[in-house]
């Protein structure tokens, strides 16, 4: 028994070392910088000064919520469709879904610019067709589009897995008991894929609230997201402390939203009432 637990401890050593070096230590640095001034003295000024960035926080949260919601709207039907396809089709759709993820995010963002820019590919087509060109790059819409494009596979995959797990007989049982097709969806498929929805939302919301590159390129420098602000603070040594303070607040915000999401998925385990 004792020997076994020693072996178990040994297996965990690389993970513990890794966590200490690359997770715990950086977090401690963030904490240290947050509560010190550039000269090294203890201070709350960094945190208190964050009110200046309130607007940027609000925009970031707003845009990541919109982007996550769009991902869900597009992703859920797609996940459902793939889960209901034949085995062969499933493989093809999966490859199509993953394919863009094999390309680097920066390259994808640049190519999106090339397509959507005022003098870009899309507008040359519109002009060639004698249609009015559209101004996309530099708008919030372009940034949301970029976030959705980059992160929506992370929405589709967990939902797909959850829907695929649902026993087909449950759907037959539901229609046997009087569910129309729409009711089978709301009464059985949606509640039973809740765990997938929760992880999908988490996996899209977290990276999109802290994204920075997409907004710089597709936003055309017209507005900033919180990720951009953090990046800028860390570009000069004198503002490390402010960057750390923003990061800390961000982390706390994300932790709170994860806690809320987890409450939802916990609810799934205990059988509850039928929704009306």
């Amino acid at each position: 028994m004792k020997k076994k637990s020693l072996g178990g401890a040994l297996v965990a050593v690389p993970h513990i070392v890794w966590s200490a070096l690359f997770i715990i230590a950086p977090l401690l640095f963030v904490l240290y910088y947050t509560f010190t001034s550039p000269e090294g003295g203890f201070t709350f000024d960094n945190i208190l000064g964050l009110t200046e960035y309130a607007d940027i926080f609000r925009t970031s949260i707003e845009m990541s919520i919109i982007a996550t919601f769009c991902c869900f709207l597009i992703g859920y039907p797609l996940a459902y469709f793939i889960a209901r396809s034949t085995e062969r089709q499933k493989k093809i759709f999966m490859i199509l879904l993953m394919l863009p993820m094999w390309t680097n995010l920066l390259i994808r963002t640049y190519s999106m610019m090339a397509i959507l820019d005022d003098g870009g590919f899309l507008n040359s087509i519109l002009l060639a067709l004698d249609l009015a060109p559209v101004h996309i790059v530099g708008t919030k819409g372009a940034v949301i589009f970029g976030i959705v494009y980059d992160f929506f596979p992370y929405m589709v995959l967990p939902i797909y897995t959850a829907i695929e797990k649902i026993d087909r007989r449950l759907l037959e049982a539901a229609s046997d008991l009087g569910c129309s097709n729409a009711q089978v969806m709301t009464q059985v498929i949606l509640p039973l894929s809740k765990s997938g929805i929760v992880s999908g939302i988490t996996m899209v919301f977290v990276p999109s609230i802290s994204t920075f590159y997409i907004s710089q390129k597709l936003g055309g420098g017209t507005f900033e997201l919180i990720g951009d602000t953090i990046e800028r603070q860390f570009q000069s040594y004198s503002t490390y402390n402010i960057g750390a303070a923003i990061s800390l607040v961000m982390m706390i915000l994300i932790l709170i939203s994860l806690a809320i999401m987890n409450r939802f998925s916990d609810g799934e385990e205990t059988a509850g009432r039928l929704k009306r």
């Binding site: 007989r169 049982a173 008991l177 059985v188 509850g272």
Partner: peptide, 20 residues
């Protein structure tokens, strides 16, 4: 199926796991 006055007891029951 949902408009037939017929109900089914399925093999392996097919109870809804999310409901008590």
């Amino acid at each position: 199926a949902y408009r037939r006055n017929v109900n089914t007891v399925f093999q392996k029951y097919a109870l809804f796991p999310h409901l008590n």
